[in-house]
C-alpha cells in the first residue's frame, strides 16, 4: 500500500513542478516525472515477491505456476514508455523553436495568449 502512496506522491511532485515552475524546460521535466510515476504505479500492480517469468514448459510444476508474475502491466509500461518518448521529443522540439523565437525559457515572458 505504501508503494502506491509513494507513486501518488511522485505524481503530485510532477504536477507541482509543472504548475509552479516558470521555466518551460522544468515544466517538461514535471511532465516526465508524472509519466514515470504512472509507469512505476503500473509496474507495482504487477509486482509479486519472488516472482518468476511466466513461461510454461512441460516441466513447469504447479508451485512454479503460483509464482508467475502478471506480464501484462510490463507490456503496458513498455508501450507507455515509448509513447512518452514520442511526446517528449515533440515537446523538446517545441521548446527549441520557442527559444529561437523569444530567446528565453521563461513562460511568463513568452506567454502572450490569454487562455
Amino acid at each position: 500500500m505504501t508503494v502506491y502512496f509513494m507513486c501518488a506522491v511522485l505524481l503530485m511532485m510532477g504536477l507541482y513542478c509543472l504548475v509552479a515552475k516558470k521555466n518551460i524546460v522544468k515544466k517538461i521535466i514535471g511532465i516526465v516525472i508524472m509519466e514515470y510515476a504512472v509507469n512505476l504505479y503500473l509496474i507495482t500492480i504487477g509486482y509479486k515477491k519472488g516472482g518468476v517469468a511466466p513461461i510454461i514448459e512441460k516441466t513447469t510444476s504447479p508451485e512454479l505456476l503460483e509464482r508467475f508474475v502478471d506480464p501484462l502491466p510490463q507490456a503496458l509500461v513498455l508501450t507507455s514508455i515509448v509513447i512518452g518518448l514520442g511526446t517528449l521529443a515533440l515537446m523538446v522540439s517545441l521548446v527549441i523553436r520557442l527559444y529561437e523565437k523569444h530567446g528565453t525559457f521563461d513562460m511568463s515572458q513568452i506567454s502572450k495568449l490569454r487562455g
Partner: peptide, 29 residues
C-alpha cells in the same frame, strides 16, 4: 510565436490528461 505557444500549452495539458487516463486504466486493471 503564437502557434508555438498555443501548441506548447495544448501539449502540456494534453500530456497531463494522458497521464490521468493511463493512471485510471491501470487502476481499472
Amino acid at each position: 510565436a503564437d502557434e508555438l505557444e498555443a501548441g506548447f500549452k495544448y501539449m502540456i495539458l494534453g500530456s497531463v490528461a494522458s497521464v490521468m487516463i493511463l493512471f485510471a486504466v491501470g487502476t481499472v486493471y
